[in-house]
């Protein structure tokens, strides 16, 4: 009994901690998609965030500076994504894929240039604050006590995102821009500015998700450390119907598949095969789960289209 219980707790703890970066990234994706730009560049924003977070921590010695650097890095590359998609009207898929490849190669290159090692950075300081003060809470205390403070921050962001999107004038405008940029523009809204804002919010959140992976999880940067999570986050965003609360639920499914994978690796099953689980789950969701979900109608459109 207690064996199972221990494992359950282990899996749940891992589920939550694997979900945090996915929630953050897909939450960011919502802001981008709702403003009319499909966030296929999420991978690049996470990757850059993971990298700049380590750089920030390495040079400042402070993991919180690193977190901010991660958000900044994500914002920077998302700004680039915005310039491509908004100003130069590049096909969003191509722009996203191009930036994802650029982020992968540029972070690898810079890792080498800064630390002289092709594969990874040295270990850096990590976020020390965790939720141990919650250990006394019955039932879930055990699951929460080891979690990073970022869990709390993520929760707050989810609620704020919901509030902003659905209760404020700003959110209404952002959603109208994403549904029908031309209509928004004829009513005098600053469509381009709103899109840039959506994309940059996306970059900050995804960058924070990346920073969690690098400086909260394993305390260093590794080549290609996001390993497709940015793409998975896109699927989570769609499965979560572009809604902050549903996205959390969708992300937990993927976090769980990741946790199971890590757990089973310790049980003697070949690790390579176990590692495919999250990807296989994503494929299945892609095939069976998201067919009838309607994306914002203005994705890929510009206010001055004819």
């Amino acid at each position: 009994m207690s064996f199972l219980q221990d494992n359950m707790v282990y899996i749940l703890v891992a589920t939550i901690s694997m979900s945090i970066p996915l929630i953050l990234a897909s939450l960011g994706g919502i802001f981008s998609a709702r403003s009319g730009i499909m966030a296929l560049g999420l991978e690049s924003m996470m990757m850059t965030g993971a990298f700049t977070a380590v750089v920030g921590t390495y040079f400042s010695g402070n993991a919180y500076v690193g977190l901010l650097a991660g958000m900044g890095g994500g914002a920077l590359i998302s700004y680039l994504y915005g310039i491509l998609c908004i100003r130069y009207k590049v096909n969003q898929v191509i722009a996203g894929v191009g930036l994802n490849l650029l982020a992968l190669s540029a972070t690898t290159l810079l890792t080498e240039l800064i630390w002289g090692n092709r594969g990874s950075s040295p270990q850096v300081a990590s976020i020390q604050l965790n939720l141990s003060f919650l250990s006394k809470v019955p039932v879930i205390g055990k699951i929460l006590e080891g979690q990073s403070i970022l869990l709390l921050i993520t929760g707050v962001f989810v609620c704020v995102a919901w509030f902003v999107l659905f209760k404020t004038v700003y959110g209404l405008r952002l959603r109208i821009v994403g549904e029908n940029p031309k209509a928004a523009s004829t009513m005098g809204l600053k469509v381009k500015a709103i899109k840039y804002q959506g994309v940059i919010i996306c970059g900050m959140l995804a960058g924070l998700g990346g920073a969690y992976l690098s400086i909260d999880h394993i305390d260093l940067f590794q080549r290609n450390m996001t390993a497709g999570r940015g793409y998975i986050a896109v699927v989570i965003m769609i499965l979560g119907r572009y809604h902050p609360f549903y996205v959390v639920v969708a992300a937990l499914i993927f976090g769980f598949s990741d946790a199971i994978q890590i757990y089973l690796q310790g049980q003697g099953i070949p690790s390579q095969l176990m590692q495919t689980i999250p990807y296989v789950v994503t494929l299945f969701v892609l095939a069976f789960g998201v067919k009838h979900i309607r994306p914002p109608a203005g994705i890929g459109m510009h206010e001055d289209d004819h």
Partner: peptide, 18 residues
């Protein structure tokens, strides 16, 4: 029409001067 089908009549009308 410059309307957003998934939104309500009111939301469509007031946009920009909410």
């Amino acid at each position: 029409f410059m309307l957003t089908p998934v939104m309500t009549v009111a939301e469509n009308i007031v946009i920009g001067r909410e």
